[in-house]
Amino acid sequence: MNWTATGGAGHPAAEAFPHDALLYDTPEQLVATAAPFLRDGLAEGDAAVVVTRPENAAALRDALDDDPRLHVVDPGELYRNRTPGAITAVRRLAEQHTAAGAKRVRVLGEIEQGPDERGWLEWERYESVINEALAGWNLWGICAVDTVRVPQPVVESALRTHRQVVTPASRTPSPAFTPPEQLLRGLPVPREPLEDTHPRLEAADVADFIGLRHAVAAELAGLPAPADLVEDFLLAVDEMTSNAVRHGQPPVRLRLWTSPDRIVCTIADGGPGWDDPFAGYGPAHGEDLSRGGMGLWLARQLCDHVDISGGVHHPGDGGVSVRLTTFLR
């Protein structure tokens, strides 16, 4: 197959961001599709980057005869445990290689999505978001999915979040691809069992920010967690509480739970919430950070999970709630 595609800055035409799924059952199937993609890219002056499990990276190195132009990146370096950080890292990768003279950056990536539905949903959201978040960048991404190792829901989500499916012989539209805005609005908010228990701290009508921060900090002080993890969580609580007061409608309510493995806090108000399914995956005003709009973006980077319910996202009884979750490490 001739591995050419349009899309990205400097590549006018059809696809805003070429974002393909490669479903494979064996390492040989992966190499048969990915090696020509990377080899053709190098021949065209593109950078070629592999972000996979070590054994797959080694197989691709062999297939490309240890070409020194092939860049192998540790998945933990690029696909960080929080999805906004992964978007920033991929953009930085594009900037670095194009600044060094590459026409475009071809990335063969493989994400470890975690052992449960909570992680699967987070990375499905990421895979959908980057169809928009990486538009205009000199990138072509192929996401490899091992259909033997990963659960069936992850395979199905790959077909929903990638425009094209690639094999050694073809590159064809995914029959299940769902436009990102539609998919993001439809994703469920995972249930949090701690919310069925009595909260450790509850504020029914937030008015005293300083007092509230001290109260939350006092509840978290004795937890077996690194100090910087607790500080990050406190900052996220501050940002979301401030957002609720400035942009929502009273009363603003806060509830906090802790358990041996995680901290959970919900901040709720009576407002409509965000009418933007991509909110929080970049500053609200782009590169101009002086204009603010960073609260939800910061929260998504500071916490393991940020879930929004109510409002325009998941209409219910009125109002909107933001749930922050951080796992104790």
Rank of each mutant, 00 (worst) to 15 (best):
S128P: 13
P226T: 10
G310W: 01
A215F: 03
G292Q: 06
E156F: 02
L256C: 15
V31K: 03
V148Y: 05
T6M: 06
M294K: 09
A94G: 12
D275T: 05
L183M: 10
V245C: 06
T266K: 03
G316I: 00
N131P: 07
W120K: 04
E112M: 10
T88R: 10
A89V: 11
D317Y: 03
P153F: 01
E192I: 13
N138H: 15
Y24R: 02
H19G: 05
A47C: 14
G292C: 06
D25R: 15
A32W: 06
V155H: 01
P180C: 00
A13G: 12
L134Q: 03
P180A: 07
P315L: 04
L139Y: 00
A169I: 09
E122S: 13
M294N: 12
F278N: 00
H214M: 14
P188A: 12
P36E: 05
T258L: 10
P179M: 05
A236M: 14
L220G: 03
A158H: 11
V237E: 11
I263M: 15
T178R: 04
V72H: 09
A221F: 14
A100E: 15
G248L: 04
W123M: 04
A9N: 08
P168G: 08
I130Q: 00
V166L: 01
V237A: 14
W137R: 10
E287L: 13
L302C: 07
A217C: 03
E231Q: 15
V90M: 12
R39M: 06
A86G: 11
D307N: 11
D228P: 04
L22T: 00
P193D: 13
L64P: 02
S157N: 12
V73Q: 14
A227C: 11
V145W: 05
L30Q: 09
E77A: 12
D304Q: 02
P180K: 01
D146T: 06
R262C: 13
Q113T: 14
A221D: 13
A58Q: 15
L229N: 04
L159A: 09
S174F: 06
G45H: 08
P226M: 10
L159G: 02
T98P: 01
P173G: 03
V49S: 10
D196K: 03
T4P: 02
I263N: 10
R191F: 11
D307F: 09
R91E: 11
V154Y: 00
G248A: 08
H162D: 10
G45M: 08
G119Y: 04
T26F: 05
A279V: 12
L298T: 13
V189R: 02
A158P: 00
G318D: 09
L229T: 15
P251A: 11
V73P: 07
A221W: 12
L212V: 10
V165G: 00
